[in-house]
């Protein structure tokens, strides 16, 4: 199956690309999408992930046609 993987902000700069279509096996998790998109690049501790524009846990499975996004902590500013 296929998913669209997207990176934002500092992670986009680290990845060197903003988005890419990936072929992944059935049962693939969000964290495994990262590993396949960026082989050898460890998943940062503070990374946030979204599946189809909703926050999602890294161990949740993805489905055909999903948009999977990775981004650093959001930064609205100080209180």
């Amino acid at each position: 199956m296929h998913v669209q993987v997207r990176f934002f902000a500092s992670l986009r700069e680290k990845a060197g690309f903003a988005e890419r279509r990936l072929e992944v096996p059935a049962g693939t998790t969000v964290a495994e999408v990262w590993a396949q998109a960026l082989p050898g690049e460890p998943l940062p501790d503070n990374v946030l992930a979204a599946r189809n524009m909703e926050y999602v846990a890294l161990d949740s499975p993805v489905q055909e046609g999903d948009e999977v996004a990775f981004f650093p902590p959001v930064t609205g500013g100080e209180r």
Partner: peptide
């Protein structure tokens, strides 16, 4: 908005 909305500052 500050803690969860996806905005990033450079």
């Amino acid at each position: 908005l500050k803690s969860r909305a996806p905005f990033w500052k450079k």
